[in-house]
Design a protein around this nucleic acid. Structure first.
Lengths: 261, 261
DNA sequence: GCAATAGTGTCTGTCAGACAATATAGG
DNA sequence: CCTATATTGTCTGACAGACACTATTGC
């Protein structure tokens, strides 16, 4: 048995009006009992031409020893986005990242402790920032694969060189799968690809990002044209360094576009 | 006190390890103060070539007298989707509808009573079903407009013939706006347009739905070709009735497509 | 026949894919 | 010059928009 003191349920609110009090008393007590709300982050980047995510090893029950998405409970006086940012700092040691709310997972048995509703976020990072996050021992960089392609959806698998396929905690394989689906879906009509690249990048790097995420390969001249015709890539005049062949021009993304006149 | 038998916690999955069991017995739920979790529904349809939504007049504080999205609290032993379906039945008197989770809103002061995190859903109905929902006096059919078009986003406005522009409760104008944005975004790559039409419909009706939602008008032959070329519309052999001009062929949507050989 | 809308055929501009050709770095 | 990759140019096929044309219903 678990014994829960219901008195904790009313500490948080402002004073209630009479009408409200009456309204609440007419309810089934189970309707008034509250779930916990958590935030889980899917931190993704492209590394070695493959989609990767950051996972944390659980050192507490439940699912102790398994790999999980970095997450934590939302505080009673904390906005959802603020909770996501806090977890980004606390668990991944990152000051900032592109963050976007993904989906809320609320299946009854997803956490064996109690009813937990998890608001998931997906986060995108340029590869350079992964190193910073990986200073923590508890974190690993896992390769992400899906059995499906394109629209369909479903869970994703995570694996590392040393451990092979990882067993993920809770319903985190589903969350990961949805994050991949969303990423694939938004890639070509939004600007999120640039969140995965450094400030300056070669067009080939941009193409690698697209190919890694969508799992397809593109015709190079057509891809170049398609990207440049959008009018939001500006050549910097700088070139790649340290390559043994012709160095590529580096471009910079600018949100504004080139519409003037 | 509420006493919960922990046996209900294990319906979901594999048996728990010894360590997990031990952990659960020592777990103190008081450690976290919890927000309330609610579900709000954006019930939409196309009526008289315009996007409309179902709103309910609040007869309780807070925001008494204002119009709001039909909603309610999620019960502690209820899945999120199940809560959405329950509210669909209780508040809109509808047995079924296309339902899809939209976004979770958790701003601190969005509900003056207490911290409420609202998981919003958007629902699509064929116009015929609106009549059924409107049997309740508390409900109204409001015309939805947005100051923005296309991708940008922002709040939406609701209005009726009798009351003009409505003042919506809480952050419901934002939720409505996001629902419209999602609907516009998914319209041409998904099958959701057919959720807004009866089983059999004329191509002109399908075009009306697209035009009402996107706020643009299409070239008729091009629209026809685009829809028919997808291969998931089957002519029924039946025709429109009660029109004073040439009656249109009625089509039926089939998810499978025509891929055979 | 007339009005009104359904449905078809054809031209054309846009754009992505294929592929060949040229450019430039290190050696 | 050779290798490897960047970058450009040209052809072509798919497809949406424009628009003129034909078809069918009630009156």
């Amino acid at each position: 048995m678990i014994i829960i003191d219901i008195s904790i349920m009313s500490i948080n609110g402002a004073a209630m009006s009479d009408g409200e009090q009456e309204f609440l008393e007419g309810y089934d007590p189970k309707a008034f009992d509250r779930p916990s709300v958590a935030v889980d982050l899917v931190l993704m980047s492209v590394h070695e031409r493959t989609l990767h995510a950051l996972l944390v090893r659980r050192d507490e029950q439940p699912a102790k020893g398994k790999w999980a998405l970095p997450g934590g409970f939302v505080r009673i006086d904390e906005e959802l986005d603020a909770a996501a940012k806090r977890i980004l700092k606390e668990k991944a040691h990152l000051q900032s990242a592109y963050l976007e709310q993904l989906y809320s997972f609320g299946a009854i048995g997803r956490d064996p402790r109690m009813r937990v509703i998890s608001v998931s976020y997906f986060a995108l990072l340029p590869e350079e920032k992964f190193a910073q996050a990986l200073r923590s021992d508890a974190l690993t960089l896992a390769k992400i694969t899906t059995a499906w392609t394109g629209e369909s959806g479903g869970p994703a698998e995570a694996s590392t060189e040393t451990e092979g396929r990882l067993s993920l905690a809770f319903d985190h394989a589903d969350i990961l799968g949805l994050a991949v689906k969303r990423l694939r879906g938004k890639l070509d009509y939004s600007d999120i690809a640039f969140e995965l690249l450094p400030k300056q990048f070669a067009l080939r790097e941009l193409q690698d990002v697209h190919e890694a995420i969508l799992g397809v390969s593109f015709n190079k001249p057509a891809f170049r044209r398609r990207m440049l015709d959008k009018g939001n890539l500006n050549p910097t005049g700088h070139r790649e360094e340290g390559v043994t062949f012709r160095p590529a021009e580096l471009y910079r993304f600018s949100r504004k576009g080139n519409i003037h006149g």
